[in-house]
Simulated scan of single mutants.
Amino acid sequence: MIKVGIIGGAGYTAGELLRLLLHHPAVEISFVQSNSQAGLALSNVHQDLVGETNLCFTSGFDFNVDVLFLCMGHGRSAEYLKKHPILSSVKIIDLSHDFRLKAHAYQSDRSFIYGLPELQRAAIQEAENIANPGCFATAIQLALLPLAANDLLQDELHVHAITGATGAGQAPSSTTHFSWRDNNLSVYKAFNHQHLGEIEESLNILQKNFSQEINFIPMRGNFSRGIFASAYINCSLSMEEAKDLYQEFYQQAAFTHLSEQPIHLKQVVNTNKALLHLEVHKGKLLVCCALDNLLKGASGQAIQNMNLMFGLPEKAGLQLKANLF
């Protein structure tokens, strides 16, 4: 059994991580640390875990584990690792933004591999430390990677993506308050969202010297979870050529699938799947991607990376069905 520890166990991503790990066939949870909830039962905070576990949050930690998941806010993982030396034998999967960019991947005494399996499966299998991708970044990269791999991103990109309220994290704010969010839509961080950097770096892995403008408009949706992203670009591919290109690129992908029919969020919420759909319109290629921001966009992908790092079946603990109705 793989012994797992979690640092920062009270938030949304940690809650989903726990829900999945408790039923993972090859995992034993050693401890779940939380400064704010120490001593309380996990189910006091993550109420979907009532009857699932008797574990309680701890204030301390036991680094006698095989893998450590860091589920803290952005900026706090790097600080944590500086203050708490961890044995090199312990693998780390960080769910924050701290180590995703190349410039930050070596800022501690560890080096981090960017953990998008559809892009770097072989590197993840050999990695000691993983920087888990961002939720928007995952959806947008999956929409664009096959084009980059074929040197087809030769014009500026237009991307629109809408995310559920859980994308903002568990701490309440003015834009997550029910009376503000309900029956409402809004744009935020237009053209300068923090996930753009990791998207650009990944596209450069496949299409050298990629420098096209990514016009990204993120939106807040009035629903709890899920991301629906659409991207379009000038492209000379026919519909059949585009389908062949995407099917070939993702033929070995465990969770990313091309749909012949238009996609929607209910197909992916509560799963680790990413669904793609293509359309061609007058010399433009439209790519839509739908995924669950808390699973394929965060905790599910973190477990997918853990499975790859430890030589487990990639789908272990992640064979989930969408709540379609």
Rank of each mutant, 00 (worst) to 15 (best):
V4K: 11
I7V: 15
I7L: 15
G9D: 05
Y12G: 04
E16S: 07
L18G: 01
R19D: 13
L20A: 09
E28M: 02
S30R: 13
Q33P: 09
S36V: 08
Q37I: 03
G39A: 06
L42W: 10
N44E: 14
V45K: 05
D48I: 05
C56M: 08
S59L: 09
S59F: 03
F63E: 08
N64E: 15
N64S: 14
V65G: 05
V67C: 15
L70T: 02
M72F: 02
A78K: 11
A78V: 09
Y80I: 00
L81I: 04
K83D: 01
H84Y: 12
P85W: 03
I86K: 12
I86H: 05
S89V: 03
K91V: 00
I92F: 06
D94V: 02
H97S: 15
K102Q: 15
H104Y: 10
A105M: 07
Y106G: 09
S108A: 03
I113C: 15
G115S: 03
G115N: 04
L116K: 06
Q120D: 15
R121H: 13
Q125T: 02
Q125P: 05
E128L: 06
I130F: 11
I130T: 08
P133Q: 07
C135A: 13
A137I: 04
T138W: 05
Q141K: 08
A143S: 15
L144D: 10
L145Y: 02
L147A: 10
N150A: 15
L157R: 06
L157H: 04
V159L: 00
H160E: 12
Q170E: 10
Q170G: 01
P172Y: 05
P172E: 11
H177S: 13
H177Y: 10
F178C: 05
S179V: 11
R181S: 09
R181M: 11
D182F: 12
N184S: 13
N184T: 02
S186P: 01
Y188E: 01
K189R: 14
A190M: 06
N192K: 11
L196G: 15
E200Y: 07
E201D: 10
E201T: 01
Q207W: 09
K208R: 13
N209M: 06
Q212R: 14
E213R: 14
I214H: 07
N215Q: 10
G221K: 02
F223R: 01
S230R: 14
Y232P: 03
N234F: 03
L237S: 12
M239S: 14
E240K: 11
E241V: 00
A242I: 06
E248M: 06
F249D: 05
F249E: 06
Y250N: 07
Y250S: 05
Q251S: 13
Q252N: 14
A253Y: 02
A253V: 00
F255L: 03
T256N: 00
T256Q: 05
H257A: 04
S259Y: 09
E260C: 09
Q261R: 14
I263R: 11
N270Q: 13
L276W: 05
H277Y: 15
V280M: 09
G283P: 07
K284A: 03
L285F: 12
C289V: 10
D292W: 03
N293K: 03
N293D: 14
L294Q: 09
K296M: 14
I303R: 12
L308A: 10
L308K: 00
L308I: 07
M309S: 00
M309A: 00
F310M: 10
P313M: 12
P313T: 12
K315Y: 09
G317H: 10
G317P: 04
L318T: 12
A322Q: 07
A322K: 06
L324Y: 14
F325K: 04
